[in-house]
Amino acid sequence: MNIRTTLAATSALAMTAVGGSVAAETMTIGITQNNVGVDSYQTTYEKAFIAAAEANSKVDVVVLDAGGDVARQIAQMEDLIQQEVDAIIIWPTNGEAVIPAVRKASKANIPVVVTNSNIAEAGFPFVASFSGPDNITQGSRSAEIMCDKFKEMGIENEARVVQISGQPGYTTAIERQKGFDDRLPEVCPNVTLVETQPGDWNREKSQKVMEAFLVKYDDIDGVYSGDDNMGVGALNAAKAAGRDGIIFVGATNFAVGYEAMERGEYWGSIYQSPVDDAKAALKTAIETLEGKELPFLNYFDTPKITQDNMGDFTKPVF
């Protein structure tokens, strides 16, 4: 197994080979990731992906990170096409903007597997398969968690909720917000979603967003965040302001979210493993190259986790 890695490189010349020459019977798979350094989920995903590749003698991988830059990711796609890799895995920085690059790979007869966050529907004809979580379902389940808690508290007819979404234009953020926005009025029709602002998957920014919400609204009963990293940022703002009794619900249970649940400060989230995510993406790419028939959408399950059932789940490693 041969791995070539770089952080945010845009040129194939910037990459150096590690190990011996690539054997003729191996398959070379390139991956361009969204932004490894932005949160621990993506960092853990990359480590798990490399470990899975190292364990497979049939695979050589080129591991790239776009650093959250759409232009850089498009350039990385073009580099991988120029290198004539056998398959490309892309974790899109922007579901719309990467479509031309994905189309270019498809025209070069290089199958593309989208991982974690899907591209926009217009790009589906150029994609072999998607591997990752069902983000709309995650948002829906988060709404159910929050509604159930409000009903337990007896405030389902008066509760007011604010939402901190992910990075604008990012498919995961769009889908998790849609799932929540659509499901909440179905299960708790009298709960009011008063405002949504982006937290960009960043804890510090989300804390500032929540600080502004707390100044603007005297009555906040619940906060939904697109992941626990942002949710804990919102929790920190509420704690600093002395605003007790707010129900915090996220999606993608981070270690910091799990710990806050243990302390009784954070109510619930959605359990998702970056290790499973990474392994599934590599497996999907390999099986695509082997000619196996796969569904277009390859989802892995992401169950609800709350203070009530968290003992059934191990603490996340990210």
Rank of each mutant, 00 (worst) to 15 (best):
M1P: 15
S11C: 06
A12V: 15
G19K: 06
G19T: 05
E25H: 13
T28N: 04
I31T: 04
N35A: 05
Y41L: 11
I50Q: 15
N56Y: 11
S57Y: 00
V63C: 01
L64H: 05
L64G: 03
D65Q: 04
A66W: 11
G67I: 07
V70R: 04
I74Y: 04
Q76W: 04
M77S: 02
D79I: 06
D79H: 05
L80E: 06
Q82P: 02
Q83V: 03
A87H: 00
I89G: 10
N94I: 06
E96Y: 03
R103L: 02
K107S: 14
A108C: 06
N109K: 10
N109H: 10
I110T: 14
I110K: 11
P111N: 14
V112Y: 01
N116Q: 08
S117K: 02
N118L: 00
G123Q: 06
F124G: 00
F130V: 07
S131F: 06
D134H: 07
S140F: 01
S140A: 14
R141Q: 10
R141G: 02
S165A: 09
S165D: 07
G169T: 04
Y170K: 03
T171M: 15
T172N: 15
I174M: 07
E175V: 05
R176Y: 13
Q177G: 15
Q177L: 10
K178W: 01
G179C: 05
D181K: 11
D182C: 02
L184Q: 14
V187T: 10
C188Q: 10
T192Q: 14
E195V: 08
W201E: 11
K205I: 12
K205R: 12
K208D: 01
V209K: 09
M210P: 07
A212W: 00
A212D: 15
L214D: 13
L214N: 13
Y224H: 06
S225F: 05
N229Y: 03
G231W: 00
A234F: 12
A238D: 11
K239H: 02
A241S: 06
G242P: 11
G242H: 13
D244H: 05
D244C: 05
G245S: 11
I247M: 12
V249Q: 05
A251G: 01
A251H: 00
F254Q: 07
G257E: 07
A260I: 00
W267L: 09
G268P: 10
P274T: 08
A278M: 10
T284G: 02
T284K: 06
F296C: 10
N298A: 13
T302H: 05
T302N: 10
I305T: 14
N309H: 00
G311L: 08
G311F: 07
F313Y: 11
T314W: 03
K315N: 02
K315F: 01
P316N: 09
V317K: 14
